[in-house]
Design a binder for these strands. Structure first.
Lengths: 339, 339
DNA sequence: GGCAGAGTGTCAATCGATTGACAACCACGA
DNA sequence: TCGTGGTTGTCAATCGATTGACACTCTGCC
């Protein structure tokens, strides 16, 4: 009765069972599975044989109680965001072969960043990669006091956690160089509301305004709800206005996709309204979409995020802040200004 | 020195600290946080005050050692798959407000399903939702002996784990009714190789072949690599052959997107080659794509998956197998056969 | 007055792995 | 023969929360 619980349920072997099977102490088994000092080849062989026989695997929970959980957490407001997918891809690649495991807790529009981060802390992850754009800096600093944290796309540099950002000023400059070079003068910018002044969207918007004014043009900024549909509705408004823009720079690709839909619905195309996005999501590459956009190599960001976390886990205490330089991908959604 | 570890690192409060702060026993505190029987209102108030003051949160690892981890795991070969995103959305909705948390472990092409499932078991999740199409039934049954499991899109019905499938025969019938009704006779099917005979793709292919033969037509099945690019290449081959098909039924939407690309690149459109997919991913809805496809309500599947897991956690031991009936979404990518 | 029984709170064992202290043993040289 | 030093293995405490057994205090009632 001590070998099984309820009907059809079996107890997974524990370290104790392996020790009994091999006829050695639990400590010895622990040493073997951790590759610790002080085990003879003979002992190692016996223990490994017992492990194989029983199909033993150490429980993460028990290990976590004594230190590491070998788990890293990723917080994202919503999976299905292509940029984040790319980041996760890079992170997974960097983690390949290591004993650490990446787990993702998705907000899906119902859980706030704080709730997710708390859930990760409750599970004693050894490190956290987060977006967390809506969370105050102090809150994250408190979090970082006990768990290594890397924040993506946040422009404020704290001493207590690492950040990885894309150079949004340079990226926006690429877009504006492109559009101005094509002769556009009525360029509108579509953005979303930001919880803080330190988000990428604010930097893109600010740079857009500066460039417009520097070129002697009047900036037009429109706020949309943060979705393809929100962008669609905002774009419909822009296109039906008196002074129709000849180019629309959207804060990111999902918004740009919505803009493209509005352009198509209005019976227009790229020869009349150029559309440019930001992020270079998979869809932007598709020939039916062919969206001009800014690539910010999310996979590289994912790889670096893991590296930074590992450094923290191994003892680094001074913050590091990485910045990537984006590139422009010119496609068919943008063209010369109509004459 | 017992209050802090290394520089800048603080120990999170434990149950013990709350007990000391409130001047009660640890057991009492435990009862309060679990809403267990046997606490007076006065005690509850004192304890809750102490919890607030210290910012205490129970550690999942310690709880897991005594039973539940309040964590459910989701195994997916690759996030960024829109159907899975939809499933996760439904699951998150169903889980809203419960103490359970969903975590996703993505394979990202480097981790096999078994490795992911093992990682989840190591973390003692209370239940698992998995795709696991490549894993043998016996392996999953062994897994299900100690952890509740729901498998998505697997047509073999085991007594030991629950399954949720889409009626792929009915879905394929919808597609074939549609295409045959439009007068198509040269209908090709694009599929991917399957690790077992129980995957949705095999059922779709088999039904396609049966319907073609029943209509007195010759089926043409082409295998593509499992990616948009693989579908593109396969479609290029199909379109440049001697007897060009007038309709292509792709095994799922990502493949269909690749087919659409090939059609566009060949200078053709829906009036010459109809394209139909399966899954109704977000992109299929976009006006620039407008793909006719089969909707299999992934969000509902996600909700039901959570329900099934909860039932298992609460003691159900007989297997349940749910089957959803899909619907057809007709869009502009399909039309009458060219005369 | 005494006793049943409901309501509260404490105690101690337990889950599984890790880790520093320590003991047993060996060989070797003085 | 004894001591020294290096290997190898065991022991026991520990991490944090849960839980069943148990003890104590009141009420109310015969």
């Amino acid at each position: 009765m001590s070998e099984s619980r309820s009907a059809g349920t079996v107890r997974r072997p524990a370290l104790r069972d392996v020790a009994r099977e091999a006829g050695v102490s639990e400590g010895a088994v622990s040493k073997v599975i951790r590759n610790a000092y002080g085990v003879s080849p003979a002992m190692r062989a016996r223990v490994e044989q017992a492990i194989d026989k029983l199909g033993y695997r150490p429980r993460t929970a028990a290990r976590a109680m004594r230190g590491r959980s070998f788990t890293l957490g990723f917080e994202t407001p919503h999976i299905g965001n292509d940029l984040h997918t790319l980041v996760i891809e890079g992170a997974a690649e960097q983690l390949d072969g290591s004993p650490y495991q990446l787990v993702i807790v998705p907000g899906m529009g119902r859980l706030g960043a704080k709730e997710i981060l708390d859930a990760l802390v409750d599970r004693q992850v050894d490190g956290i990669i987060a977006i967390a754009s809506e969370v105050e800096t102090e809150w994250i600093e408190k979090l970082a006091r006990h768990t290594p944290v890397v924040i993506l796309g946040r422009h404020d540099q704290s001493e207590r956690f690492d950040t990885i950002i894309n150079d949004d000023v340079a990226g926006t400059d690429l877009v504006m160089d492109h559009l101005l070079g094509l002769g556009h003068t009525r360029i509108a910018h579509l953005t979303i509301s930001s919880p803080s002044a330190m988000t990428p969207h604010v930097f893109r918007q600010t740079t857009y305004v500066q460039r417009m004014e520097a070129a002697g043009l009047s900036p037009v900024v429109t706020q949309a709800r943060a979705s393809e549909r929100g962008a669609y509705e905002a774009a419909v408004g822009l296109l039906s206005g008196p002074e129709r823009p000849t180019a629309i720079f959207a804060g990111h690709d999902s918004l740009a996709i919505g803009v493209l839909r509005a352009v198509a619905d209005a019976g227009l195309d790229a020869s009349e309204v150029s559309v440019v996005g930001y992020d270079n999501i998979e869809l932007a590459r598709h020939p039916l979409v062919s969206l001009t956009t800014v690539d910010q190599c999310g996979d590289e960001a994912g790889r670096v995020a893991i590296q930074l976390l590992m450094e923290r886990i191994e003892g680094r205490t001074v913050a590091r802040h990485e910045c990537f330089t984006p590139t422009l991908c010119v496609r068919r959604s943008s063209g010369p200004a109509p004459s």
